[in-house]
Design a protein around this nucleic acid. Structure first.
Lengths: 351, 351
DNA sequence: GATCGCCGAGAGAGCGCTCTCTCGTGTTGG
DNA sequence: CCAACACGAGAGAGCGCTCTCTCGGCGATC
């Protein structure tokens, strides 16, 4: 490696430079770089050597300008507007291990495809406007949108741009965009079936925020499953998908229904809080109260007792989102095909 | 909004179009869009109306091509090479809540600056090469590198590109790049001081992987602090910064030193595992064994008992990295100025 | 009243690349 | 042996934008 190669201040190497050192035209170098088949092997070799010698790297901006592609997509997290006071710096979504799994699953497909991922946060009108204009600027070829609140206008606005996009989870209102999600109702049913098969009859649930479609469906699935077992009483408390929220909601639920012998908690993180509350209330687990979580996060196995939980294949779902999106980028006219994954029950000690 | 505006298939609006509808030249539109001062207010108004009417959004690729800037940076996570078998799809880094806090802190500074963040994972030669060539392509203006392993060649390679970059944490080998980190030794000292002031004398530590500089320094700080208190025996066990690893290492440590009355665990996640092991071994916490963690993650407060821990201001540190990077992008010739933050002790129930 | 200077706007040259079109060469068939 | 053809390579026209340079018009100066 020459000193030249180390100095980026020097004029960057262009196609022209490579062409000159290889003794061919710009067009030929372009063909070689882009793997066109119609190049004489001898010339190809010469060009490759010239590329090597000059340290040439294509300029993405110039390429995008003519191809109208950027080979990158946006991962957009749309959160509820921050409250004016005391909110953490930036949304809590990023610290949720669930989100990390989504990122991992996406990258697993995007990286081999040579597609980069831009991470964006939308949490108010300004950032929403910025994001939409960013999209229209053609800065990314498509979008994966993580939007959890039913009232979020972003899925609709995104659909209206007509640009390729995929949603993480079914939107509250029907929108002409493909989505990927787990069968929430089936998951809740599995949890209830497990609790019932363990002989539990006084079963409650800690539900997620009822302005989130996913949380709504888990609650509805819970109720339907209980009804299917002939149980009409379905006590529940709402929490915010955090550990602390789960603990607090469990306290409320327990004070109103001290005789509970089973709980379906709509996320593992909340289940951690629920277990804590139950233990502190003197319940033995699972003898007195059996608990089933949702997600099968890494923490589930580390709970005390280890958490029986409904597994959703987050990484595979994320990978599928990436594939769906790349497909739509390639053929935008195809019909928006969604995918619903089946959850499975992971049996551990808590139920 | 007209039907036209909704149809992206239609030829996108360019500067030329705006210029025509406003009855001015391209140059003037460009001046208005970029806020140049030397524009007649009347014309400016006309242009703004034309921009509004046409729905014009500047093309980033074209702009980058001439300005040589992209207004985006890369957040690069460099992990140890994956093992060939049984490794999870993509590195575990993303599911670590610590990482989420870093992302949040970065975005907090980048968003107001209008700078986008591209998330990249480097975990083998191929992806490293891809990343470096991505950089040289000028696809991003700078890099924030999260690299934790001492043997990682990436910090050096990154420095050699001469492009703006900031490191999360001090690199093992000195490299001409600014870094941001917490004073690891001081943190370990705070933990030990706390344990000693609680009357503990038989103190061990669960250290992080000793191929990570941060983990090394915490261990060294631990030893130095014990020595300062006249304690020469410093038992320790190494773990991998995971919950399960922390639990396992604690088992080992405890079997060799059953009389331990205090433990400094080099991360909260590992501390969760340590608490579990200690409880299962019949120790009362904190009466029999006091425990101090490191990080002050969200989970620390949710532990049973709540974890006394060394807080590092992750979000502020990340924000500082972003500021440092933006500064270097603006003035690359400035000297690479690093920052070391002071940790604080958060007192809870475990020690 | 002529000259100078200044300010604001337009003209136009690229930025580095892709891609179509054209042309020259080698190959095949009649 | 020549026409028809295939194929590989070069020429050149942009992609949409910024920015320098130039120029017209105006007020100030002598």
């Amino acid at each position: 490696m020459t000193a030249e190669a180390l100095r980026p201040a020097a004029r960057p190497v262009t196609l022209e430079d490579v062409a000159r050192t290889a003794g061919v035209s710009r067009a030929t170098v372009s063909r070689v770089v882009n793997g066109a088949p119609t190049v004489d092997p001898v010339l190809r070799r010469k060009v490759e050597e010239a590329v090597e010698a000059t340290g040439y790297v294509p300029n993405q901006a110039a390429r995008s300008l003519v191809t109208q592609r950027t080979d990158s997509i946006a991962l957009v997290v749309s959160e509820q507007e921050r409250r004016p006071v005391a909110a953490p710096l930036v949304g809590r979504m990023f610290t949720d291990p669930h989100f990390g799994r989504v990122v991992g699953g996406l990258l697993d497909v995007l990286r081999p495809a040579g597609v980069q991922m831009v991470l964006m946060l939308v949490d108010d009108d300004t950032s929403r406007r910025q994001f939409l204009s960013y999209l229209r600027q053609g800065h990314v070829d498509g979008t994966v949108l993580v939007s959890s609140h039913a009232s979020d206008p972003l899925p609709r606005l995104l659909a209206e741009t007509g640009l390729p996009a995929v949603l993480a989870g079914r939107p509250a209102r029907t929108v002409p965009l493909p989505y990927v999600e787990v069968d929430q109702r089936a998951g809740a049913r599995m949890a209830v079936d497990r609790l019932v098969s363990e002989g539990r009859r006084r079963i409650g649930t800690i539900a997620g925020p009822q302005d989130m479609p996913a949380a709504q469906e888990r609650l509805e699935g819970f109720r339907d499953a209980l009804a299917a077992h002939g149980i009409t009483d379905a006590p529940w408390a709402e929490a915010d998908f955090t550990r602390a929220g789960g603990a607090e909601a469990t306290r409320r639920l327990l004070s109103e229904h001290p005789d509970l012998d089973g709980v379906f908690v709509a996320s593992d993180l909340m289940a951690q809080g629920a277990l804590q509350t139950l233990l502190r209330a003197g319940r033995r687990l699972p003898q007195d109260v059996a608990v089933v979580g949702f997600d099968d996060s890494e923490a589930a196995g580390a709970c005390e007792p280890a958490l029986t939980t409904v597994r959703q294949p987050v990484e595979e779902m994320a990978a599928e989102m990436a594939r769906l999106l790349l497909g739509r980028i390639k053929r935008p006219e195809g019909s928006p095909l969604s995918m619903v994954f089946r959850p499975t029950l992971v049996e551990r000690a808590s139920a």
